[in-house]
């Protein structure tokens, strides 16, 4: 019922107007591009240093009955991380700046545009940014022989879902932020997810308690979904991971819009 209520009030034209504001900002100068480019390189550098470099020491890896090179194991995880951090950078730093300092959304909400439409437009933009990263990253993976073009095409929409999920939750967190100091907390959390979500080693290597804990956290599901598709190991489990991410996307979006309304429409 809630979704139909929301859907009936959302105007695609207004959502795309929110997106087009960001397209305009893209033309504003080099600063935004520098942020964009630097965000892309981080996961790529991890792939090359740890995946390829450390991988040479580790040798092949057998996970779930399949043997693969360590780089092929790490690469999909870095792809998922790249989708996550691309979308998160947009809906946390940039979104918070627009929300709190530039007062962009106050100006927008004085027009017919509603908070949910702002949230949807910003999230779509974040997903696009994440997808630019993952598109290029998949190209690199194909070039290095870490996946096939066919599986890369299958994994691409999954990375978009990862972007939506983390982007939405990040946006919600941004609406709760008091100031920049809270971002340090978030970065630490993000880094912990990055290290332990089955990114550099299979989660089965951890004690059972830790393994279960990891399985509750979001990046684990993103990594598993993307890795399954990149390596061509399909199973019902993938649907479960996708469902987890879809709930994050919808829930985060709804909470973000509600918080924005509480914060700006008083």
């Amino acid at each position: 019922m809630m979704t139909t209520l929301v859907a009936s009030r959302v105007s695609p034209g207004r959502v795309s107007a929110v997106i087009s504001r960001n397209v305009g900002a893209l033309r504003s100068g080099p600063s935004y591009w520098i942020v964009l480019v630097s965000g892309f390189f981080e996961p790529l550098l991890y792939l090359l240093s740890i995946g390829v470099g450390v991988g040479a020491l580790v040798g092949d890896l057998t996970v779930g009955g399949r043997t693969m090179s360590y780089a092929a194991f790490v690469a999909p995880a870095m792809l998922a991380v790249s989708a996550m951090s691309g979308a998160l950078a947009e809906t946390t730093f940039n979104f918070f700046f627009k929300l709190k300092y530039m007062k962009t959304f106050e100006a927008v909400l004085a027009t017919p545009v509603r908070p949910i439409e702002v949230a949807m437009g910003e999230l779509t933009w974040a997903m696009v940014r994440g997808s630019v990263y993952t598109g290029i990253f998949l190209g690199v993976m194909v070039a290095l022989g870490l996946t096939t073009p066919g599986w890369a095409l299958a994994a691409f929409p999954a990375t978009a879902l990862v972007g939506l999920a983390f982007g939405a939750v990040g946006m919600w967190i941004s609406t709760l932020m008091r100031g920049w100091q809270d971002f340090d907390l978030m970065s630490t959390g993000q880094f912990a997810l990055f290290l332990f979500s089955g990114t550099f080693s299979p989660v089965q290597n951890y004690p059972l308690g830790v393994e279960i804990l990891i399985q509750l956290t979001p990046l684990y599901h993103a990594v598993e979904l993307v890795r399954g598709l990149c390596t061509g190991v399909l199973g019902v489990g993938l649907a479960g991971h996708a469902a987890y991410l879809a709930v994050m996307a919808v829930g985060g979006l709804w909470l973000a819009a509600r918080r924005m309304e509480k914060r700006l429409c008083v």
């Binding site: 795309s16 107007a17 504001r21 305009g24 504003s28 017919p112």
Partner: peptide, 17 residues
């Protein structure tokens, strides 16, 4: 909007309507 030009501030706003 400091990220947009003077003119874009108006054209972008027009789209919200």
């Amino acid at each position: 909007d400091p990220d947009l030009t003077v003119r874009e501030n108006l054209t972008t706003y027009a789209r919200y309507f």
